[in-house]
Design a binder for these strands. Structure first.
Lengths: 203, 203
DNA sequence: CCAAATAAGTCAACAAGGCTGACATAAATG
DNA sequence: CATTTATGTCAGCCTTGTTGACTTATTTGG
């Protein structure tokens, strides 16, 4: 089993074929055709209109990220570097632990990327003043320039899309996207957004 | 076939001056501060409000995909399998070439994933009727069930987000997302969407 | 009719960026 | 002073991308 979360092992084979299957705690065993017979009443099919949004999100993200990739490739950097640099530049003095919580990757994964960013002079680390164990992260001038360049590229695309969608004010879209984040994360994401953010109060 | 690599090159030294390296894979000297001097007029800084959308898109996608991962892990499947299965189930009889164009990955990458999906009975391939070179892709009943389950999961999240954003009708969001796709791709994406799709005409 | 183009598959090697587990170090804290 | 915390590191593995160089059927165009 692939491990996404440690607690995933909890899913264990359930019931026999005639066990009433709870939709959310489904079985695990390699599902054969017999496991999903026509006899099991098919759940209400997902609204095609809603599925459209899922697909649009995929296509939007697919193309959106590729644009920055081209620039990053000039410097032999990848998306992982981009994300780290962006959030560091965005929040100067960010702690490593905070960055980890934003990116939701392991510290070993981040370490590899961060090491390259530091070695190549995109990011510098300063010892924390109140807590000298901390390595506060700052984008160098060079790092700020690159981050700025990438931000501009992506901001332009967002701007064009907002206009194309006939929206001078994208508040509804911001609220939609914020609501798409996990509820447990929403407050943190909201807190991270700039004061001028196009989202009002979190519900 | 593919011309853009989303992942970047190695940190390995490339080509001497007489070896005309591919533009995309050329190793570039570490950019020093001198490469981005103040003399180059600093562009207008990106609107923080627009950058917010970039971040929200990141967070939304980050959490959105993790939800399906949990289900996929039960079957030892990954996101690559999910994407392939989804679009096959969505368009029964899809050609391999079409799927490649949707996913924007190489056929070698797809082959690996597709082989597993076929071997494990999620997808079957039929010889094309008009063109017998084609291997038309269909989700098996089992594959349809899984795809349906994942779609339902994601559709529910979209639905909740639409409601939370106070939108009974998400047309503006659909238009926004469609506009976020590359202009060259937009027509194809639009054509793929179901008739009931919440987007009117492409401009 | 046959040469060339096309649809798809395959082998081999490699890169990027995730992951786990185990351990190291310095500083803060009770 | 023992323990916890913030961070770093080594070693190895997995998924999913990539290139390049073919092969096999089948269709198509001259």
């Amino acid at each position: 089993m692939r491990t996404i979360d440690p607690h995933m092992q909890a899913y264990k084979p359930v019931a026999t074929a005639d066990a009433p299957a709870d939709k959310r705690t489904r079985r695990i065993e390699p599902v054969t055709a017999a496991d999903t017979p026509a006899a099991v009443p098919a759940a209400v099919p997902p609204d095609p209109k809603l599925v459209t949004f899922v697909e649009l999100l995929f296509f939007a993200y697919r193309d959106f990220t590729r644009e920055a990739d081209v620039v990053l490739a000039e410097y032999n950097l990848g998306r992982a570097h981009h994300r780290a640099l962006h959030f560091v530049n965005r929040s100067p003095g960010l702690k490593v632990a905070e960055l980890l919580d934003i990116l939701k990757i392991t510290k070993q994964s981040l370490a590899r990327v961060l090491k390259e960013l530091v070695d190549q002079g995109w990011i510098i680390q300063h010892e924390g003043t109140s807590d000298r164990r901390q390595r506060l992260l700052y984008a160098t001038e060079k790092g700020q320039h690159l981050s700025h360049r990438l931000d501009t590229l992506q901001a332009r695309r967002v701007d064009e899309a907002l206009r194309a969608a006939g929206l001078d004010n994208g508040d509804s879209i911001a609220r939609f996207l914020l609501s798409m984040t996990s509820s447990e994360e929403r407050e943190k994401v909201w807190a991270l957004l700039p004061a001028a953010a196009p989202v009002s109060r979190a519900p």
